[in-house]
């Protein structure tokens, strides 16, 4: 099970925290894009990119250890790429004992490359969210032409997510405290259906409550003059200095990409 904890932006007030969120969003996406375009097996470039992320973390006064530790959450997904090791072409490095599957060198390189690239990408995303509040990201998204309705829906979701998550946690505790089938007991078909029924009803009740709440919220919106169109204060002008700062990591990463494509 992947355990992830919701990351809040750190309290520090660094150059990265102050950078325009639109710039940060685009820089993070560009870094991920460049990482994705890196050729397989360019380990020198991967290490340089990793160093770039760590440098950003230090500038933002976010613990590099935390960034790395949190990025490791992608590892379970690597299973999808592990097959490459045994299905890749020659040359083979060795054969696995017992099964005798051959370990393909290009397959291994490819697999490790995917995992490295994935780790670097998620580190870029972590740095984004560790230096930018989600509400700031929301206005950045809408001023970057993501449809306003979608951004408004996401904003509502963010607002009520924790409320409903608390509700779900309460329901879950209530279920466990009077559950006829203890959590660790062996699962039979009958108990499986029983468990699914309990959980399914909880989900149903969450949805019913969400519907009812949305009606009340809608009334509250109408009372304050809502007419159906999302509205917000115009975002401030993009400052050229912020764009220049944002260009630095992108240019470094892009030159790394250029170098590793040439070599």
């Amino acid at each position: 099970m992947i355990q992830l904890q919701h990351l809040n932006p750190t309290e520090a007030d660094t150059a990265l925290h102050r950078l325009d969120p639109r710039v940060k969003l685009i820089v993070a996406l560009s870094l991920i894009l460049i990482t994705g375009l890196m050729p397989s097996g360019a380990f020198g470039a991967y290490i340089a990119l990793f160093a770039l992320m760590m440098a950003e973390a230090i500038i933002a006064r976010v613990s590099p250890v935390l960034v790395v530790a949190r990025s490791l959450a992608v590892l379970p997904f690597s299973l999808a790429a592990v097959t490459l090791i045994f299905t890749g072409p020659e040359p083979y490095l060795a054969a696995l004992p017992v099964t005798g599957w051959p370990i393909s060198e290009p397959g291994l390189v490819q697999c490790v490359s995917i995992v490295f690239k994935s780790l670097i990408s998620v580190q870029a995303a972590i740095l984004l969210i560790a230096t930018t509040h989600f509400t700031t990201l929301l206005w950045a998204m809408s001023s970057l032409r993501i449809p306003g309705v979608l951004v408004a829906i996401i904003s509502f979701m963010y607002r009520y997510l924790f409320l409903l998550a608390d509700e779900a946690a309460r329901l879950s505790r209530a279920r466990d405290s009077r559950s006829a089938v203890p959590a660790g007991s062996p699962v039979t078909a009958r108990s499986l259906i029983f468990r699914a029924r309990t959980t399914g009803r909880m989900i149903g009740s969450l949805l019913v409550r969400a519907f009812e709440r949305s009606e009340r919220v809608y009334n509250a919106m109408l009372s304050r003059g809502y007419t159906g169109a999302p509205m917000q204060i115009d975002p401030p002008q993009l400052c050229p200095r912020d764009v220049l700062i944002g260009l630095i990591p992108v240019l470094i990463a892009a030159s790394l990409l250029a170098i590793s494509l040439i070599i």
């Binding site: 989600f134 509400t135 929301l138 904003s155 509502f156 963010y158 607002r159 009520y160 409320l163 709440r213 009340r216 919220v217 009334n219 509250a220 919106m221 304050r224 003059g225 809502y226 007419t227 509205m231 917000q232 204060i233």
Partner: peptide
């Protein structure tokens, strides 16, 4: 229930909602 009244993530946006729609 103030959780129905405050439907924006941030306090500022909720207090600004009415004036913006005016």
């Amino acid at each position: 229930n103030p959780d129905d009244q405050l439907f924006n993530p941030r306090v500022f946006d909720d207090v600004a909602f009415g004036p913006l729609h005016m």
